[in-house]
C-alpha cells in the first residue's frame, strides 16, 4: 500500500502568538515550529499500516523552504520519501489554494491512501482534506479516531456529537485523522542519521502545471487581533459550605446563569 501523509509546519502549541502591530498577521520571528499535532497522529497511523501491510510512506508538504524540517522529521521516524511544494506565489494563498496544490502534486504521486490531520493547528480550518478528496474524486472521511486496513478497504471509526460512526471506505481513499491512541514515535539516532541521506523532492507550482492565478485566495484575512483577555475574577473565601452557598448565590443573582 502506498500511503501519503500531508504534513504542515505550524507554530508549536505552547508558542506565545503575537499579532503584528497595526498590520495583518502574526509575528513569525522566534516562534518554535513543529509538525501539526494531528498530522503526527496521521503519520504514526501510516507507519503502523506500512508495518502491517507493507508498502511505502511518503510525507508531502506545501510551504516555504523551512518546511523541510517537518519532512526531515517524517523521514527520521520512518517515512520513505519526502516531497516539498514551494513557490513564492503560495505565500498569500488560502485553504482552497493549498488543496489545489496538494491535488496537483498527488496526481504525480501514486497513492492508495492519503492521510491528513483533522485540522492544521494555527489556521484551524479542517478544509484541505475534504477539498483534495473532492478534486481527486476519492472517498473521504474526516476525523478518524481509529483506522484499519481490511480486504482492500479502510475501516474507520469516528466520534460525532455524542455518538460514533463506523465507515467502510474503498481504496484508494483519503482520511483526516483525529487524536488516536498512538502518538508519533520518537526518531532513533539511526533514523535521524539515515534521514540526512534521503533526498527531499522539491517542486514549484509550474512543475505541477499550476500558475499563481490558480492559487489566488478566495478568502482573505482582513484583520487580526487578540480576543479580549479574560480578567481574573473573584476568589470566594470561607470554609467549603459557606463558600459553596455564596458561589450559588453569585451564579444566580450576579452572573444569572442558573
Amino acid at each position: 500500500m502506498n500511503i501519503i501523509v500531508c504534513v504542515k509546519q505550524v507554530p508549536d502549541t505552547e508558542a506565545r502568538i503575537k499579532c503584528k502591530d497595526g498590520a495583518n498577521g502574526i509575528v513569525r520571528d522566534g516562534i518554535k515550529l513543529c509538525m501539526s499535532p494531528y498530522d503526527e497522529f496521521a503519520l504514526e497511523a501510516a507507519l503502523r499500516l506500512k508495518e502491517q501491510h507493507g508498502g511505502t510512506v511518503t510525507v508531502l508538504a506545501v510551504g516555504p523552504d523551512r518546511a523541510k524540517e517537518v519532512l526531515k522529521t517524517g523521514l527520521a521516524v520512518g517515512a520513505d520519501k519526502a516531497v516539498l511544494v514551494s513557490d513564492a506565489s503560495l505565500a498569500g494563498t488560502d485553504g482552497r489554494g493549498v488543496a489545489v496544490t496538494l491535488a496537483a502534486a498527488l496526481k504525480k504521486l501514486p497513492h492508495d491512501l492519503v492521510l491528513f490531520g483533522k485540522k492544521a493547528v494555527g489556521v484551524d480550518r479542517g478544509q484541505v482534506g475534504p477539498q483534495v478528496a473532492h478534486r481527486l474524486d476519492l472517498p473521504f472521511v474526516s476525523q478518524a479516531g481509529e483506522l484499519a486496513h481490511e480486504n482492500g478497504a479502510m475501516r474507520v471509526v469516528r466520534e460525532i456529537e455524542g455518538g460514533q460512526e463506523h465507515f467502510e471506505v474503498a481504496l484508494p481513499a483519503m482520511l483526516s485523522v483525529d487524536k488516536t491512541a498512538n502518538e508519533l514515535r520518537k526518531a532513533s539516532l539511526k533514523g535521524i542519521m539515515g534521514a540526512k541521506s534521503k533526498p527531499i523532492q522539491a517542486w514549484s507550482l509550474s512543475d505541477l502545471g499550476l500558475s499563481a492565478a490558480d492559487v489566488a485566495p478566495r478568502l482573505q484575512v482582513v484583520h487580526t487581533e487578540h480576543p479580549p483577555q479574560r480578567g481574573a475574577g473573584r476568589i470566594i473565601d470561607g470554609e467549603a459550605v459557606a463558600a459553596a452557598r455564596e458561589l450559588v448565590r453569585l451564579l444566580r443573582e450576579e452572573a444569572k446563569v442558573i
Partner: peptide, 23 residues
C-alpha cells in the same frame, strides 16, 4: 460546524470552487 457539517461545508465549497470560512 458539526462533525458532518465541517467536512460537508469544505466539500461543497470545493464543488462551488469558492472561498470557505470555517468554524
Amino acid at each position: 460546524a458539526t462533525t458532518h457539517g465541517r467536512e460537508l461545508a469544505a466539500y461543497v465549497a470545493s464543488m462551488l470552487d469558492c472561498g470557505y470560512a470555517s468554524d
